[in-house]
């Protein structure tokens, strides 16, 4: 009871606890996420993503008139308490904010992977005209980014008639 009524507990103890918790759990989760991203990127390496506006005419395996279907993937990723604190501190000095860099990198790669996963499921051989959009779902307050959403979308091209490899629809 005496600890809970001590203002120092609320003003220093709780934030420090959250920062330590955020650091320990947050960095473990980030490492695990990167491992999973790298593993899936290795599997999907043979499904190219290109940002040209037309399906390449000589793409191997696609006839002159491939079937096309829109595919998309998105991810909402949040900073942990420690990195949020670090980023706010960095804002005082300016310069490179690595905490935000890894946040955006993770979200973007995750969104691309989900889009490619969807394309793989319908048996696509390439995804063209890929666009990415980033939106900040502000939760940090005071103008800081805390949570971002990345959306990746494009058009998957598959052989006409569909060879039916793992087709979902």
């Amino acid at each position: 009871m005496s600890v809970l009524s001590n203002p120092l507990f609320w003003q220093v103890g709780v934030p420090v606890f959250l920062i330590v918790l955020g650091y320990l759990v947050g960095s473990a989760r980030e490492r695990a996420h990167y491992r999973s991203i790298l593993a899936r990127e290795r599997i999907l390496r043979d499904l190219p993503i290109i940002s040209t506006r037309r399906v390449p005419e000589d793409f191997p395996g696609l006839g002159p008139a491939p079937e096309t279907r829109m595919v998309e993937g998105s991810a909402v990723i949040s900073l942990d308490y420690f990195k949020r604190f670090l980023a706010q501190l960095k804002m005082l000095f300016g310069g490179r904010v690595t905490a935000y860099e890894s946040l955006i990198d993770r979200a973007r790669r995750e969104a691309l992977l989900r889009m490619r996963g969807e394309a793989r499921a319908i048996g696509a051989s390439v995804i063209v005209n890929v666009r990415m959009e980033t939106a900040s779902i502000s939760k940090g307050g005071r103008g800081a980014i805390g949570t971002i959403e990345v959306l990746a979308y494009g058009t998957a091209a598959l052989p006409a008639g569909g060879t039916g490899v793992g087709r979902v629809r």
Partner: peptide
């Protein structure tokens, strides 16, 4: 979830 970061499913 904001404390530990990561995806907000």
């Amino acid at each position: 979830k904001n404390i530990v970061g990561g995806e907000l499913g």
